[in-house]
Amino acid sequence: METAIEARSVRKHYRGAERPALDGFDLRVAAGSVCALLGRNGAGKTTAVRILTTLLAMDDGTATVAGHDVRADGDGVRRAIGLVGQNAAVDEILGGRANLVLFGRLRGLSKAAARARAAELITRFGLDDAADRAVGTYSGGMRRRLDLAASLVLAPSVLFVDEPTTGLDPDARREVWGTVRRLVDDGVTVLLTTQYLEEAEELAGHVAMLRDGRVVLEGSPAELTSLVGDTRVEATFEPAAADVAGAAARVAEPYAVGPVAVSRSTVAVPVADAVAATRVCGAWAREGLEPHDVAVRRPTLDDVFMHVNRTVSEEAR
């Protein structure tokens, strides 16, 4: 498969910083896919985006975007990309339409072509009512939509979206997700950075987890979650004098595919699938063990995240 973004051993150490922001950062994103760069604040996500979009020079390593070397052919990279989010913004004083015309003209469109394209994008992003109002008066969601529109004036082949939904309410967040999905349908490669696991699961086919400036784990969301284990039945029992939870654990044992965990009144039973989960519950009912609360949980990226953090800090020790 064709590669849209490739970074190898990228290193960046900001002057005065204690540790490098990126330290052996490797990443490969297939053309037409969505890759989520997932990590906490300070993991190096934004630095990676800034280097790949030519805003920041790397100390060491190589990177290509859409076939252009980031160092040697910055202009080629800039022609191929769009940048949205934390570090790319729009003019607050001008209206949405004027912003789009401005960015169109800076991308080399004629005045008439830039106007026509702006009108098209205004409608596509649902900004008709606010097109000529100062962007300073826009809501967070509208701004982010305009931000996305501004990076699409000339369809980019690779779009960088840096924490697109930070600070947005749930409705606006879904709106942005919808927009990103439509872009992917159009064949754009998207590199998304986020701290929200939910967002990565929603949008990305490939997730790379960033910690201390390097990718510590990557794969599809399903691959990552399978790393930390199976489906679990989690049940909470009345903390009675008798050890109800302990009894429930013993009853569940035959159905479990791994060790059953008991902590005070809660029991967690790893099972093969949802059918096995209902059998566990049935067995409890037959024994007269009545849980307060039962949940069947698939591992989430959150679990992966905690798993990764644990593993990395154990290695460091």
Binding site: T54, G82, L83, A89, V90, L106, G108
Partner: peptide, 11 residues
């Protein structure tokens, strides 16, 4: 506001 960065990401 990040407008400079947007400009710098353009060709």
């Amino acid at each position: 506001r990040g407008v400079t960065d947007r400009f710098r990401s353009l060709p």
